[in-house]
């Protein structure tokens, strides 16, 4: 169940799920979408063309530009699903037109890595 829609849109793709918050500026390569923070559980994985599921964004405010750059470089996720909203991810997705929703805790826990899903913010369904 989608609790809140931050950026509207539709997306279809494979779930890439992380347990750890993401500092987009430090941890993500803005050209390729590959996670380069070796302390992160998605280390060396690419977030490109995924439905990225993670708790929330942290750290540098410039992370919003990283999200915009990922989109411009065709390396962005199709959509993002978070547990908690934050300013950096919200504003980055707003400018880049990447659908972003917050889901209930129960829904968040039940989302499985690798699953194919269809997200529609209008009907608030996964």
């Amino acid at each position: 169940m989608v609790e809140k829609v931050i950026v509207k849109g539709k997306a279809k793709g494979k779930i890439l799920k992380s347990k750890i918050p993401i500092n987009f500026l430090g941890a993500v390569d803005k050209k390729t979408g590959i996670i380069r923070d070796n302390k992160h559980d998605l280390f060396q994985k690419s977030i490109k063309n995924t439905i990225l599921v993670f708790p929330y964004g942290v750290g540098s405010s410039v992370g919003a530009y990283t999200i915009y750059s990922l989109k411009s470089n065709n390396s962005a996720p199709y959509a993002m699903i978070c547990q908690k909203a934050d300013l950096t991810v919200a504003s980055g997705c707003a400018l880049a037109n990447i659908p972003l929703v917050i889901v209930t805790q129960k829904e968040y826990d039940s989302i499985k890595n690798g699953e194919e899903i269809f997200l529609d913010t209008e009907s608030k369904t996964l």
Binding site: K4, V5, I6, V7, A85, D86, L87, V89, A90, S91, C93, A94, L95, L100
Partner: peptide
Amino acid sequence: RILVATGEAI
């Protein structure tokens, strides 16, 4: 558009 998304987020 940015202000509305961030406003929702917080």
